[in-house]
Design a protein around this nucleic acid. Structure first.
Length: 485
DNA sequence: GCTCCAATAT
DNA sequence: AATATTGGAG
C-alpha cells in the first residue's frame, strides 16, 4: 500500500495558505507526492505543464469557479483527473451532479459525495483532519479502475467508520449495484452510468469522419467505421449525428431568416461550425449593438452604452452585485433571476438580499452561493445573450463579446479572456474586472479629477457612495437612473 | 435482419 | 440538454 501511495501524486489547491500547508504536509507525511497551487489558474497551469503527472486533485469549493463546477469540470474533461473537494455547506442538485452534506448529531458535517458522468469526485469536510486523507489512494485506484466513470453516491453514516469498513461497504454496494439490487438504508448507490460522453476529442473525430465522406453521404455506419473507436456503437453515432444534423438545420434556418436570435449558436457544436459563419455572426452582433462598458461608482454598478456624453473607461464590477445593476439609459441590463442580460431595462431587477434568505432558497432556485460569506448569488446556467455582443460564458463565467458564445474547450475559454473582453472574472476574488481594477478611492479620484475642481475639495475626505455619486453626476441618487446597492 | 432516420424515452 | 431506445421504411 505504501508503495502504491508513493506513486500517487496529488495537486492541492487552496487560497488559504494555512490550509494549503496543512493539507500538503498531511499528505506528504503519508508518502504522497504533493504539489500545491493557490488558485484555479495556477492549478491549471501546473496541470498543463505536467500532463499526466497528477493522479488526483484536492481542492476547495471556492476554487471551483463561478458556476461552482467550472474548474472541476475543466479538470475532469481536460485532464481526466478525479477531484476531492472540501468545504461544502449545502446541497446542490444539478443534472448529473449531486452534492450531499450529511450533518451528524454533534453538528459536524460528514461525508459528501456526488455523481458525475465523468470522474470520481469525493468530498470531505473542512477543516480537514488527517484521517480524511488516509485513503486517498483508494479514490485514485478506484477512479482509474473504472476509467473515471464511477458513479458513486455513497452516504456515510454519522458514526465514523474506519476507512477499512468504508472501503468494504463501498465495494459491497458496488457489487449490489451491478446486480441491480437495492442498496441498504445506510449506504446507497446510484445506478452506474454508462452513457457515452461526447467529449470534444470524440466530437472532433466525428467531424473529421463527416468531412471525409461529405455531409450528404455521412451516415452512422460510415462515420463509425471512419472514427474507428473501440466500443463506440453505431447507435451512439446515429444519435449524435441526429443531433448534429438538427443543429445544422437550425443554423441554416437562422441564416435564412436573418434573425438576430442566436439560440442555435449556443450549442456546443457551434465552436466547430465554419469560421465564416462565426465571423458573420460577430459582424451581425457588432452592427446591432455597441459594446457596453461597465462601471462602478462606489457600490453602484451599471453599464453604459457610450452614447457619447460620458466617455469613461473605468471598469470595475463586483460580480456578486451585478444582478442589482440597472441602468435605464442602457438597452442592456442583467436579470437577477436568470443572470441573463436583457435587451430591455429590467425593471424588476432587485437586490440580492431580497432574493436570498436561506440556503433553502438557493436550493430551490437551483443557484449557487458564491464565496465564503454566503452573500452573493451567481451561477445560473443560461447566461448567453440573444442579441447582445456581451455574453457570459457558462463555464468560465467570463464576460466577453463577439460570437464566441460557446466555449466548449479550455482553449476557447482562454481565447475569450481579456484581450477580447472588457470584463473578465478573477477566480481568486470572484470579481469581474476589466483590464484594471480600482479601489473606490481611486475611482473617486478618477471621476472627480475628471470632473472639476469644485468636487475635488471634497476628495480629501472619505467619501460615501452618495458623495461619489454626486461628485460624478452632480445630482442626487433619487433620480432612479440606477440604484445603489 | 440490417441500415437509416425521425420520433420518443430516459 | 444530452444521449439512448424504439419503430417504420427500405
Amino acid at each position: 500500500m505504501d508503495c502504491e501511495r508513493s506513486n500517487i501524486t496529488i495537486l492541492v489547491v487552496d487560497h488559504d495558505e494555512e490550509s494549503l500547508a496543512f493539507v500538503a504536509k498531511t499528505l506528504m507525511e503519508r508518502q504522497y507526492k504533493v504539489e500545491t497551487a493557490k488558485n484555479a489558474h495556477d492549478a491549471l497551469v501546473t496541470l498543463r505543464n505536467n500532463e499526466g503527472l497528477f493522479d488526483i486533485i484536492v481542492t476547495e469549493f471556492h476554487v471551483l469557479g463561478m458556476d461552482g463546477f467550472g474548474f472541476q469540470r475543466h479538470i475532469q474533461d481536460q485532464f481526466q483527473i478525479p477531484v476531492i473537494i472540501w468545504h461544502l455547506k449545502f446541497l446542490i442538485i444539478r443534472p448529473r451532479e449531486l452534492i450531499l452534506v450529511v450533518m451528524s448529531k454533534d453538528n459536524r458535517q460528514h461525508l459528501i459525495s456526488m455523481t458525475l458522468e465523468k470522474g470520481a469526485t469525493h468530498f470531505i469536510v473542512k477543516p480537514v483532519c488527517a484521517e480524511d486523507f488516509k485513503d486517498i489512494s483508494m479514490y485514485v485506484v478506484e477512479a482509474k479502475k473504472h476509467k473515471l466513470f464511477i458513479d458513486n453516491l455513497f452516504v456515510q453514516s454519522e458514526e465514523q467508520e474506519s476507512s477499512e469498513q468504508a472501503k468494504t461497504k463501498k465495494e459491497d454496494s458496488k457489487r449490489k449495484n451491478i446486480d441491480e439490487s437495492q442498496g441498504e438504508a445506510k449506504c446507497k448507490l446510484v445506478k452506474k452510468s454508462s452513457r457515452l460522453v461526447w467529449t470534444d476529442d470524440l466530437h472532433n473525430l466525428f467531424l473529421d469522419a463527416i468531412k471525409k465522406v461529405g455531409l450528404k453521404k455521412a451516415v452512422p455506419g460510415k462515420i463509425l467505421e471512419l472514427m474507428n473507436i473501440p466500443n463506440l456503437t453505431r447507435d451512439n453515432v446515429a444519435s449524435h449525428l441526429q443531433k448534429y444534423r438538427s443543429f445544422l438545420d437550425k443554423v441554416a434556418e437562422k441564416e435564412l431568416v436573418g434573425n438576430a436570435s442566436q439560440r442555435a449558436f449556443r450549442s456546443r457544436f457551434a465552436s466547430n461550425i465554419p469560421t465564416s459563419i462565426i465571423e458573420e455572426i460577430k459582424e451581425m452582433r457588432t452592427n446591432i449593438f455597441e459594446v457596453p462598458t461597465l462601471y462602478q461608482i462606489g457600490n453602484c454598478y451599471f453599464n453604459h452604452m457610450n452614447h457619447g456624453e460620458k466617455n469613461w473607461n473605468c471598469k470595475y464590477l463586483n460580480c456578486s452585485n451585478i444582478g442589482s445593476c440597472v441602468l435605464n439609459e442602457s438597452p442592456l441590463s442583467v436579470n437577477q433571476n436568470s443572470m441573463q442580460m436583457n435587451e430591455n431595462n429590467d425593471a424588476s431587477a432587485f437586490l440580492k438580499s431580497d432574493l436570498i434568505n436561506s440556503i433553502q432558497d438557493v436550493q430551490s432556485l437551483d443557484q449557487l452561493y458564491k464565496g465564503g460569506d454566503d452573500t452573493s448569488l451567481v451561477g445560473n446556467t443560461s447566461c448567453v445573450l440573444n442579441e447582445s455582443p456581451l455574453s457570459v460564458n457558462q463555464t468560465s463565467m467570463q464576460f466577453y463579446k463577439g460570437g464566441d458564445v460557446i466555449a466548449s474547450s479550455s482553449a476557447e475559454i482562454n481565447s475569450c479572456m481579456l484581450n477580447e473582453s472588457p470584463i473578465s472574472l478573477d477566480q481568486n476574488s470572484n470579481q469581474l474586472q476589466g483590464y484594471e481594477q480600482y479601489s473606490n478611492e481611486e475611482l473617486y479620484d478618477m471621476f472627480v479629477g475628471d470632473k472639476m475642481s469644485e468636487a475635488s475639495t471634497s476628495a480629501t475626505n472619505p467619501k460615501s457612495d452618495m458623495d461619489l455619486f454626486e461628485a460624478v453626476f452632480g445630482t442626487t441618487s433619487q433620480n432612479n437612473n440606477f440604484k445603489f446597492i
